[in-house]
């Protein structure tokens, strides 16, 4: 179950004439982890809604697995896509955790036995099986997001979009969700799109798409982005902490490696200085 996505000169203009996307063209290969970054209002969420058919493009083509997204194909293509949104409060519909996870399956008119199996599997995958009968109002924000993730997974998508899904969570919940998604991505061969303004989420992604005022200003590997100081400034983002440290060492005449280092990698490099 792998899916690829292609945008061909896609533009989107809101009914109030506000331009959200300007002639975007890019490809997302199947089974990859992608980060879509940009300031608030840069058009990131519009892309997610276009892919899921919640909005439709003003002009241009969107292809999912080579099939053009349009009114006749949308119902089928939407089945390939799961989205988790930002606010944990606004996605829970069911009265209990398991009923909530089953919501999308009910919409597909599935038999109870099949639903039960998929609900249990999805809850197991996000580590929330023991909460199946709990009222979701009693859960923490991080737990609610896990339930929302399970609701998407129960639909067995091949593309998973996380639209700022961790931005309202505490660091522990955030790293838990990151781990769950990484292991699911490996297990289910998902194509994952992180829509984010959090640099931490860029770790381990294969490709970064950066948007500014509806224009694509960067499309490439994250390590490359860290050296594009102009683009970073334009996007109003700071490079990751380790990159900032590397920069400081450079200013003091040292020569840190060009490739991206995480905290441990950077510590290794510093150790070698002694």
């Amino acid at each position: 179950m792998q899916s690829k996505i292609e945008f061909k000169t896609v533009s989107f203009v809101y009914p109030n004439q506000v331009k959200a996307l300007n002639q975007l063209s890019f490809k997302i290969e199947a089974g990859k982890k992608i980060a879509l970054i940009g300031k608030n209002g840069s058009g990131k969420s519009t892309i997610a809604k276009l892919i899921d058919g919640l909005l439709s493009a003003t002009s241009g083509k969107i292809l999912i697995d080579e099939i053009e997204l349009n009114e006749t194909t949308i119902a089928d293509l939407r089945q390939k896509i799961g989205i988790v949104f930002q606010n944990p409060e606004d996605q829970i519909i069911g009265a209990t955790v398991e009923e909530d996870v089953a919501f999308g399956l009910e919409n597909r008119n599935l038999q109870f036995k099949l639903m039960k199996k998929r609900v249990n599997q999805a809850l197991q995958d996000v580590g929330m099986l023991e909460y199946a009968n709990i009222n979701p109002n009693l859960l923490s924000g991080g737990q609610k997001q896990k339930v929302s993730l399970a609701r998407s997974l129960a639909l067995q998508p091949s593309i998973l979009i996380l639209d700022e899904a961790t931005s309202m969570l505490d660091p522990i919940a955030k790293s838990e969700i990151k781990h769950i998604i990484s292991s699911l991505q490996r297990k289910n061969k998902l194509t994952v799109i992180y829509i984010t303004h959090d640099m931490e989420m860029l770790e381990n992604v294969d490709q970064v798409l950066a948007l500014d005022h509806g224009d694509l200003v960067f499309n490439g590997k994250p390590e490359k982005l860290y050296h594009e100081t102009d683009i970073l400034a334009q996007l109003a983002i700071k490079p990751p902490f380790t990159e900032q440290i590397k920069q400081l060492f450079k200013e003091h005449g040292y020569n840190p490696p060009v490739e991206y280092l995480d905290d441990r990698g950077l510590s290794e490099w510093i150790t070698k200085l002694f």
Binding site: D90, I93, N109
Partner: peptide
């Protein structure tokens, strides 16, 4: 809330007046 919820309902494949099963 209503606006966000509408997106979540849409993303879960909900459409009014379509046949649904019950969990």
């Amino acid at each position: 809330h209503a606006d966000n919820l509408a997106d979540a309902l849409g993303a879960s494949g909900y459409e009014a007046n379509q046949p649904r099963s019950s969990y």
